[in-house]
Write a protein that binds this DNA or RNA. Structure first.
Lengths: 217, 217
DNA sequence: GGAATATGAGTGGTCAGACCACTTTCAAAA
DNA sequence: TTTTGAAAGTGGTCTGACCACTCATATTCC
């Protein structure tokens, strides 16, 4: 093993600094020159660390203004990684499969909790469907993930959603509204099996529809 | 927006070069100085691009040797992001819960697959228990995760296991062998419900047993 | 001749300093 | 008061210089 890479330490140092100073998404982090002096390394080393974090979408830099902690949602990462990684079918499949793991678990949690399965959000979705307000597929599932109450699972899901390609981000179409209504109804009835089956059916349909077909699971 | 970032172009340039030159995982890519001259940018800009790709696990650099395209199945993505994501919710509960999500899903996969539920590994574990060869709890579950076949899920699980504290890493004790045998039997019989319930019971016991002590660095 | 050793070229790792382009601020000028 | 513009601070880039390390080669030693 060589010497450990400096810039990797820097990444961790910055992360520590963020939590110590209680820097929140959107806040500014110290300038490159400032960090260099504080951490006693050259500015170029700082930059290598920052550029890495930027590519991951964890920070955002604006010339003349500074560097900001970003919301973990806007990953330029997606474009880059998708050209490298997601060409591999297995990886692509793993992403969808893993995402589904979290989604099903969330549904199970919600169905097992009388409170959350009776929240007005469910009728809200039905209403929007009826009114032709076609939200995106991701929006729909995100609501489920949020309501499950496991924030870590939610964060992982958010990442996986970023990797899930366009179809997941697009608006629902008329053909699938019945499937969604089915899921919603099952949740309202706290019918775990029906809800999870409904979700699986929908996702399977979606995968088949968008042409990236693979074996069913 | 500002001028597009140079280093981002470089990332794409390198990507293009890799496919044009037909560079395969494990192969060496041109040196930093070479790239700088070819692409007509400073070496520091090249380095910012390379460092980003390295943090993603897409390339691997060895001082004195060069930079190599790595097998991008092993993306370090999860690990890096985790240090940021786990920052605000240190909640041990979320970690255990999320880990359990992946474990249960893996068990479901295995039980649904006749081949993997008949693998000799299961009798192997029983034998080791009988012989008093007490493996660690993590070892036991890892085998399940590996056999599920979802590498991304495995990757996430490995990470979560790392955050799961000492009890998860320690060897099993005599009191829990019955629970493990129970799980193994259920898997052999492809009894999904019994297996998942067995796992949940075991984990609940473990959490209760160890009270709670954790340790992160 | 063969084996140990020294050398040098090439590579990534780091640093310091210099510009540039850009944004914000605020004091001076209108 | 409004407008203007200079200054300070920021990220973006380049250059050149070392350092630490690897590897192939040449050299020396036995």
């Amino acid at each position: 093993m060589n010497q450990p890479k400096r810039y990797l330490d820097i990444v961790l140092d910055i992360r520590k600094m963020i939590s110590q100073e209680n820097i929140r998404p959107g806040d500014r982090i110290p300038s490159e020159r400032e960090l260099a002096e504080t951490l006693k390394v050259g500015r170029s080393t700082i930059r290598e660390a920052l550029r890495s974090l930027e590519l991951l979408g964890l920070i955002e830099t604006r010339r003349g203004e500074g560097t900001f902690l970003s919301d973990y949602r806007n990953h330029r990462l997606v474009e880059v990684l998708s050209t490298f990684i997601l060409q591999d079918n297995q990886s692509q499949k793993d992403v969808w499969e893993t995402r589904l793991i979290h989604e099903i678990s969330a549904i199970r949690t919600i169905c097992g909790d009388a409170n959350s399965s009776r929240l007005p959000v469910w009728t809200g979705f039905s209403k929007r469907i009826d009114e032709g307000d076609f939200f995106s597929r991701e929006d729909f599932v995100r609501e489920i993930m949020v309501l499950s109450g496991n924030r870590l699972s939610l964060k992982i899901w958010l990442l996986l959603a970023q990797y899930s390609g366009n179809p997941y981000k697009e608006r629902i179409i008329i053909e699938e509204t019945a499937m969604l209504e089915n899921i919603l109804a099952a949740i309202r009835q706290q019918d775990t099996e029906k809800a999870t089956e409904g979700l699986k059916t929908w996702i399977a349909w979606l995968q088949k529809e968008t042409g990236k077909d693979d074996d069913d699971s």
